[in-house]
């Protein structure tokens, strides 16, 4: 398992204020965020964060504004220095890096996509896409081919000589993604990359990212405040609140087994049929059930199955993976899974 971990965050704390070390001792002694702010004027940004981000997968860090998610992602390339803790990338603690090594990490091993695009307005789209190469001192001729390839891939054919201001928001963010891809780094940090776009374009961009991910399998760290977006993209979901991790794990699992009322309230509003997959609701068995309605794939959404059943809740479906039966889905279980547990029920149930 540990071989597959690309980025690992250990006991990370960040405290904003005049004397963070002193405040840290108080936090270690058990002081909470509100008390700390009232008593010392220090803001507890991140509180004992531990996350393993799997290689080649998308880790989504979700939280409302002020939860510390943007602060957290900036620790992964040290745009912000932590108060305490470690950040391992490829097994090396990047907090031990000197300035030179850190720059190489940022140039070669990590790239970043920003909420407000942050393109260089005085350079063309092509020059923006080739930014990481320019920083290494390579000429335009050297990167033109690579940059053009990625610009085409994200759907910007023929726009290479435009300036960013001539493009729409969605297209600018495509440039942002092409810039990250052209650097050929394994890790892509995406800070609310799609939050500034309107809903339809946002869906397009999410689909683009999923498509790219299937093809390239980069280690993506994606920040969002939108649960639907998080569930759509995440292989590993981390939910952040007031600077600490409330729950993390497989998104389906979080959805079906929310750990505390905060998350229950959070997941209560979403369209579960569209998000939940057959594999999360089925019973693992190789026996054939009665009243078989048909076969479904393990990765189908419940929505698909409902459409297939035409609303008949008495049927059972055989769940297949790679042509093999791996389980059975009872429509009654499916319907039950669609109803979220009431907030507080988890606590009551233990």
């Amino acid at each position: 398992m540990s071989d597959d971990v690309k980025i690992s965050v250990r006991n990370l704390y960040k405290i904003f204020g005049g004397n963070p070390q002193e405040a840290l001792e108080k936090v270690h002694a058990g002081m909470g965020k509100v008390e700390l702010q009232a008593e010392t004027g220090h803001v507890l940004g991140l509180n004992d964060i531990n996350i393993d981000m799997p290689a080649g997968k998308t880790t989504v860090i979700m939280g409302l504004s002020g939860s510390g998610k943007s602060t957290l992602i900036r620790h992964l390339n040290r745009l912000i220095e932590p108060t305490a803790g470690e950040v391992y990338v490829n097994g090396e603690n990047i907090l031990d890096y000197n300035e030179r090594r850190l720059r190489r990490l940022r140039q070669k091993e990590m790239s970043m996509v920003f909420q407000k695009f942050a393109l260089l307005p005085h350079r063309t789209v092509l020059e923006n896409a080739g930014m990481s190469w320019t920083i290494e001192g390579k000429s335009k001729r050297a990167y033109a081919e690579e940059a053009t390839k990625w610009l085409d891939r994200v759907g910007l054919e023929g726009q290479a000589d435009q300036y960013p201001a001539q493009l729409s928001g969605g297209m600018q963010q495509r440039v942002g993604i092409a810039r990250a891809l052209t650097s050929n780094s394994d890790i892509m940090l995406m800070d609310e990359a799609f939050s500034a776009l309107d809903p339809l374009i946002r869906t397009d961009m999410q689909d683009l990212l999923i498509e790219l991910q299937d093809e390239l399998a980069k280690t993506v760290v994606f920040i969002t405040h939108d649960l639907d977006e998080a569930l759509k993209l995440a292989d590993h979901l981390v939910i952040l609140k007031d600077g600490y991790v409330v729950q993390q794990g497989e998104p389906q699992n979080i959805l079906l087994h929310p750990k505390d009322p905060y998350i229950e309230a959070f997941v209560g509003d979403i369209n579960r049929a569209r998000v939940l997959r057959v594999r999360s609701v089925m019973q693992k068995t190789s026996e054939r059930p009665d009243n078989v309605g048909g076969e479904v794939d393990h990765d189908d959404t419940l929505e698909n199955v409902i459409a297939l059943s035409e609303g008949d809740t008495t049927k059972n479906y055989i769940v297949m993976r790679n042509g093999q039966q791996i389980g059975v889905l009872h429509m009654r279980d499916l319907v039950r899974a669609l109803v979220p547990r009431k907030p507080g029920e988890a606590a009551a149930a233990g």
């Binding site: 390339n77 745009l79 850190l102 720059r103 190489r104 990490l105 940022r106 140039q107 990590m110 790239s111 970043m112 920003f114 407000k116 695009f117 942050a118 393109l119 260089l120 307005p121 930014m131 990481s132 320019t134 920083i135 810039r179 650097s183 940090l189």
Partner: peptide, 22 residues
């Protein structure tokens, strides 16, 4: 724009490159 400066940092620009390039 602070965001552009941050992007320059995130892609590993030296402070010299930032000054003259951005």
């Amino acid at each position: 724009d602070k965001d552009v400066i941050e992007a320059a940092d995130a892609f590993g620009m030296t402070s010299r490159q930032k000054l003259f390039g951005v």
